[in-house]
Design a binder for these strands. Sequence first.
DNA 1: TGCACCCGAATGAACGTTCAATTGCTAAAT
DNA 2: ATTTAGCAATTGAACGTTCATTCGGGTGCA
Lengths: 195, 195
Amino acid sequence: MNVQLLNKKEAIFESTLKLINEYGFHGTPMSQIASHANVATGTIYHYFNSKDELIIELFKYCREKTNLHIFSFNEDLPYKEKFFFIWNRLVDYYIAHKETFWFIEQFYSSPYYELIKQKKTTYYGVDKMQQFFEEGIKSDVLRNVSFYTLISIYIGSATSHVKMVTYGFCKMQTKGREELIEIIWNGVKNQKYEG
Amino acid sequence: MNVQLLNKKEAIFESTLKLINEYGFHGTPMSQIASHANVATGTIYHYFNSKDELIIELFKYCREKTNLHIFSFNEDLPYKEKFFFIWNRLVDYYIAHKETFWFIEQFYSSPYYELIKQKKTTYYGVDKMQQFFEEGIKSDVLRNVSFYTLISIYIGSATSHVKMVTYGFCKMQTKGREELIEIIWNGVKNQKYEG
DNA sequence: TGCACCCGAATGAACGTTCAATTGCTAAAT
DNA sequence: ATTTAGCAATTGAACGTTCATTCGGGTGCA
């Protein structure tokens, strides 16, 4: 697959992302995606077998890009700094790529997700996250609570915050953000370490 | 509007809720909703002007029911107990009404929400929640952080937890839940009060 | 008599997908 | 260096289906 093809496939991805955000899964016909991406309708079917497959592949594409972005930290940083770094990178990325954020949210809460969740997909992001939290617990920096508890707070608060900001409910003042991640840190850190 | 009608309208709501969860906004034709609710297709249009209106009204209906449920606490309880109570009621309600939960999530992250958010809808839930957090801050039980920070942690963790459970990623062991709300409480409570 | 409620077949537009035809590229053959 | 064969990429009109909505007619209660 040469560069030209990659470009077309990506053009289709980006157009789908934009249009689905605006009109939803249904409100976005293949023909509209095609013309927005400057390709013919038939061309989409060269890369994807169906609209559903296109949407599923787009989801994986978005998730992959996001994960690559947030885990790009220096391994030598102290744990606490990594803890703040990843969370902030995630929030930054989503705010800078609102369409990716909303598309992922929409996908997760739609029946589409059922189609791919069973595939015990030890995919990059969850692996990394679990590993990161386990590291924190083993080294006694984090309280010994379950992975699911940690991820509920950590990811849940990040997405909640991004929702607030992108809905326009609150300004993106850095103060609110710092407050938020700091509260979480206070909640999950092992009290033995620096108050 | 008599009882019979209320029943029909609710039957339409409940059928829509169930089918949209299974097949999504698009995958659910009006005809299918009608036959599932044991009414004629045309009848739906007696109660709602369009499919979009039906979906929007269903959203309000679900949100209202949820809010009425979670704010049904005894005002005399100490603040901390109310803090735990509301969170637990919310999680309980969503787990017991998965379809309501997923529908609301789907709606919030779809373009539909754009259609109703501007209406500076000081709706029941947000009002109550804001009032509750303000009460906590004024009485010095909670740290003095912004409403949006509090709600991001409080609601975000609850929905995240419910997602985990309803996806089947983690069992609904009460332990995990207690851990979670306790961590949040630790994070947001004013340190001056009981460690 | 009038009005609200209810029915479901008919309508017509919209959409996902197909396909036969065309172009462009690569590499083997001459 | 030129030709040629073959495959990948691309096109967009056409097809057949599906679906939201309409509407003319029916029922029963005030």
